[in-house]
């Protein structure tokens, strides 16, 4: 009973984790940048959904849709603004890390001004009060709604990457920016657009996160960034489909630990992240590439 419950709950959370981390992985795949402000963008999305929900009774799903276009515009503009200067830096990788770290601090501070440092809590019944029965056990309706809302977002993104011209160009840039440029793809614009899409995904995931996690605070960004990084490292950095695998692994590991070793569940993302980074060759691969 307990085991089955943990597995189903893990899968529900896993789908949500995949959505949560997708923007981070997309940006990494195309730009080779770890967006350390990712968790803070999620946090902003949570506040957006919270305000819309309690002020105007908007559904968080509507918030996702509304946020897409402004996010793409703001994210794209931000990228076009900072990328040329970053490219000229001595060590662009480290400098981009530090830069987004700074941006994350700014977002966190602004959120604390705008929304105060107190947690905004969401009632567990916000998205409906009747538990949903799956395989004979009852689950909070919020979990089911959030997971069900995450699936179409993932499908739309994969359809975009697989079926549209822009999406195929994006994957070409992921594989090799030089060769993509050689076949006439505007790498700069694709990168800017991808950054914008990554921002939109983070903000959109945030509008579900506030319900899934039961609330939002201005300081939650760091732990969400680490959680998302754990997801994409487990699934494969720069591999959008892998994000789904990573999300499910993390969701299951977290729920199983929560069920059987409840005091230690918060360790799960960190331990998984460290274990994978240290044993899987991707982390070490970057070294082999450099030495070659």
């Amino acid at each position: 009973m307990l085991l089955e419950y943990a597995i189903v709950a893990g899968l529900l959370f896993g789908v949500f984790y995949a959505y949560l981390a997708l923007g981070l992985n997309l940006i990494f795949g195309v730009l080779r940048i770890v967006n350390l402000a990712h968790g803070d963008l999620v946090m902003l999305g949570s506040y957006l959904a919270f305000e819309l929900y309690y002020a105007w009774h908007w559904s968080p799903l509507l918030a996702i849709v509304v946020a897409v276009v402004p996010c793409i515009l703001v994210g794209g503009a931000l990228y076009l603004g900072v990328a040329p200067r970053l490219a000229r830096a001595q060590d662009p990788e480290m400098m981009s890390l530090v830069l987004f770290f700074g941006i994350s601090q700014v977002i966190e501070a602004i959120a604390a001004f705008g929304f105060t440092s107190n947690e905004r809590s969401v009632s567990a019944n916000a998205l409906g009060s009747h538990p949903v029965g799956i395989l004979g056990q009852a689950y909070p309706v919020t979990w089911v709604v959030v997971a069900a809302a995450s699936v179409p977002v993932l499908l739309i993104l994969f359809a975009y990457l697989g079926r549209t011209r822009l999406g195929r160009a994006t994957r070409a840039v992921m594989a090799s920016p030089d060769e993509a440029a050689a076949v006439g793809i505007n790498v700069r614009m694709v990168s800017a657009l991808t950054f914008g899409v990554g921002v939109a995904l983070a903000v959109g995931a945030g509008s579900l996160a506030v319900f899934m996690l039961g609330g939002v605070t201005p300081t939650e960004g760091v732990s969400i960034t680490i959680l998302s990084f754990a997801v994409i490292v487990v699934g494969g950095l720069g591999n959008p489909l892998g994000t789904v695998v990573g999300g499910l692994v993390l969701g299951l590991a977290f729920q199983l630990t929560l069920t059987f070793l409840p005091n230690w569940a918060s360790l799960v993302p960190y331990v998984l992240l460290l274990a994978v980074v240290l044993t899987r060759p991707t982390g070490v691969l970057s070294r082999a590439r450099r030495l070659a």
């Binding site: 770890v34 480290m94 890390l97 992240l273 460290l274 980074v277 240290l278 982390g283 970057s286």
Partner: peptide, 8 residues
Amino acid sequence: EGVYFAIA
């Protein structure tokens, strides 16, 4: 290296 080290 780099990002991996920082986040790990």
